[in-house]
């Protein structure tokens, strides 16, 4: 059973990695891949169907959709990675402190975590962005406000089991300071299982960013972010549906590739870590 899961995990891991690598390449080499300037407005070429000159057609302002999708990779992937990295680091730090020191600090942190976990997070994110005004900073803030909580809980669990192991006692006996032990021994050991969580979280984050941008509460219109492109194209859905198809496919494919990578990593990961992750 376990062996079968590992082989299947490897396949998913490979597929996911290749796809993500492809998206990364699109993001990095966007100016060389995109045939047109993504912001180049050509009114006479508006709403052209997909064809020879415009692979995915043009949008309501005559901009080349393929170029915009390619440049959109930069926004969607970059933003999601930033949000997830902040959450991961914040959660890992706070969770390690809670788990390592225990006692009052632990109690306090976990109370806050429990309270925050009781919120449906997209509702609060909507609320934060809606109230503070739509901007990229507020979008990141909204997704970090509750995002760190999950990592904190999982890191704490991991740290609790790591701290009982012999090598931590040895490090202590050798006179290592608390900070040294956390940074040098605890965090490196807690990191791999958290990476699985983070990978799966990237896909959630891409979806949240796209949804908020679609509602007009995230990345704003002229920016070629996929959700914002769909928001702009919405008015043409019944007359020129091609405007809506490619950005949506791009979102789906990028989310799928991170899901594949995350699931693959989880299957390959040793069962002990899987138990702690409870996934």
């Amino acid at each position: 059973m376990y062996i079968l899961e590992v082989t299947r995990g490897k396949k998913m891991l490979l597929t996911g990695s290749i796809l993500i690598f492809g998206f990364m390449a699109l993001a990095v080499f966007a100016p060389f891949i995109a045939p047109y300037d993504p912001d180049d407005v050509k009114v006479e070429e508006r709403l052209l169907p997909p064809g020879e000159h415009h692979l995915m057609g043009t949008d309501g302002f005559g901009r080349d959709i393929f170029s915009r999708v390619v440049f959109g990779t930069r926004y969607s992937l970059f933003l999601a990675l930033v949000v997830v990295s902040i959450n991961l680091l914040l959660g890992l730090m706070i969770g390690s402190i809670a788990g390592y020191f225990g006692g009052l600090i632990d109690e306090l942190i976990m109370r806050i975590v429990d309270i925050l976990l009781a919120f449906p997070n997209i509702i609060l994110a909507l609320c934060i962005v809606g109230v503070l005004g739509p901007s990229v900073q507020n979008l990141i803030l909204a997704l970090v406000a509750l995002g760190w909580v999950g990592y904190t809980r999982v890191s704490r669990g991991l740290v609790l089991s790591i701290k009982e192991q012999g090598f931590i006692g040895a490090a202590k006996a050798l006179g290592g300071s608390n900070m040294y032990i956390i940074m040098r021994h605890i965090i490196p050991n807690a990191f791999p299982p958290l990476l699985v969580l983070a990978t799966l979280h990237v896909s959630h984050t891409i979806l949240s960013i796209a949804a908020l941008s679609f509602l007009g509460l995230g990345v704003q219109a002229p920016t070629p972010e996929w959700g914002a492109m769909l928001s702009e194209g919405k008015q043409f859905i019944f007359t020129h549906p091609h405007v809506m198809i490619s950005p949506g496919l791009a979102i789906t494919l990028s989310v799928l590739s991170f899901n594949l990578l995350g699931e693959g990593l989880r299957d390959v990961l040793d069962p002990r870590a899987r138990e702690v992750l409870n996934v």
Binding site: F214, L230, M244, G248, V255
Partner: peptide, 22 residues
């Protein structure tokens, strides 16, 4: 099921609209 969790809801809704309504 992996594809199912990867599709953004708002886009899926619009695509269903396109297909079954339009």
């Amino acid at each position: 099921s992996l594809a199912g969790v990867s599709i953004p809801e708002f886009w899926l809704g619009l695509m269903l609209m396109l297909c079954f309504s339009l």
